[in-house]
């Protein structure tokens, strides 16, 4: 009975895995075809000879290296600054008493319900008036103040025993030292998860970079590659080579840090 059930489970999962994989496989297969092969009817599945030249030609025609560097620069900066600012505030909200604490916390939380599109026109204006449009700074600055991260981190700080603070206080630790040297190291795994969430958000964000930056050398992969596709290029083998190159870094990271990725995404589900 159980054996039979397992066969069904396997069959279902194999079907799902194939459906998930086909676009990836097709992207790679197309990227190795000649232009003629990609436009052949009936369809050619495998290229007669893999055309690695598509990769070098898209690499030469298109500033992929610059986009890689920009994307990772923006991701790292946004992760570091966001986690620092949000965790510092979260520590204060979780552990310290001060007048207006509830007011500021509720004000921040109420902003979490507002859809992102409301802020786009004003953010664009703010960036232009600060002379930051078309810079890498514009890509991370407005998103640094992540209310969800504040909320999660406050929960995590609250879950730590208060004795830690008291003992450190007796030893003459400043509030900042308590936060930095004692409590923060204990929150390593939720912070890693949040870093991944922030990083993924930056990685996948399309609309904001599309709006705020124009020059190709100030672009990130998502928007930069979208511009490439938008130019109505029909050389699909080259496009697919570009897509493969752009998607590869995060897929490689994912294979190494799958556990942390999954924890991060599961955390995003604990919003309610």
């Amino acid at each position: 009975m159980n054996k039979k059930k397992n066969v069904w489970v396997y069959a279902f999962l194999v079907l799902c895995a194939i459906t998930t994989l086909i676009p990836f496989i097709w992207m790679i297969l197309t990227s190795l075809k000649t232009y003629g092969e990609s436009m052949q009817v009936p369809l050619v599945i495998f290229p007669a000879e893999p055309q690695w030249v598509n990769y070098s030609s898209v690499w030469n025609k298109f500033p992929i290296l610059r986009l890689y560097i920009n994307t990772f620069f923006v991701m790292v900066i946004s992760i570091v600054i966001q986690i620092f600012i949000c965790s510092l505030a979260a520590y204060a909200f979780a552990r310290l008493t001060f007048p207006g604490k509830n007011f500021w916390f509720v004000l921040s939380l109420s902003m979490m319900m507002i859809p992102y599109q409301i802020f786009l026109v004003p953010h664009y204006d703010i960036m232009v008036s600060w002379n930051l449009s078309n810079t890498l700074t514009a890509l991370w600055l407005p998103k640094t103040f992540n209310i969800f991260a504040l909320f999660m981190l406050r929960q995590f700080f609250s879950s730590l025993p208060i004795d830690l603070d008291e003992a450190a206080q007796l030893d003459g630790c400043s509030k900042f030292r308590i936060y930095w040297n004692i409590l923060l190291p204990l929150l390593k795994s939720p912070i890693v998860a949040l870093c991944i969430l922030t990083g993924l958000g930056t990685w996948k964000d399309l609309m904001w970079p599309l709006i705020i930056n124009v020059d190709m050398d100030k672009m990130v992969l998502s928007a930069g590659l979208a511009n490439l596709t938008g130019q109505n290029i029909t050389n699909y083998p080259e496009l697919m080579a570009g897509g493969t190159l752009a998607a590869a870094p995060m897929i490689i990271l994912f294979f190494f840090f799958q556990k942390q990725f999954v924890e991060g995404i599961a955390m995003s589900g604990s919003k309610a």
């Binding site: 998930t20 998502s222 699909y236 897509g243």
Partner: peptide, 20 residues
């Protein structure tokens, strides 16, 4: 395998599906 689309760059996803 089933998690892969989560981390794939949406631009690459859109591109390949447009082609499909």
């Amino acid at each position: 395998l089933i998690y892969l689309p989560i981390i794939t760059l949406p631009t690459a996803v859109g591109m390949v599906w447009k082609w499909l």
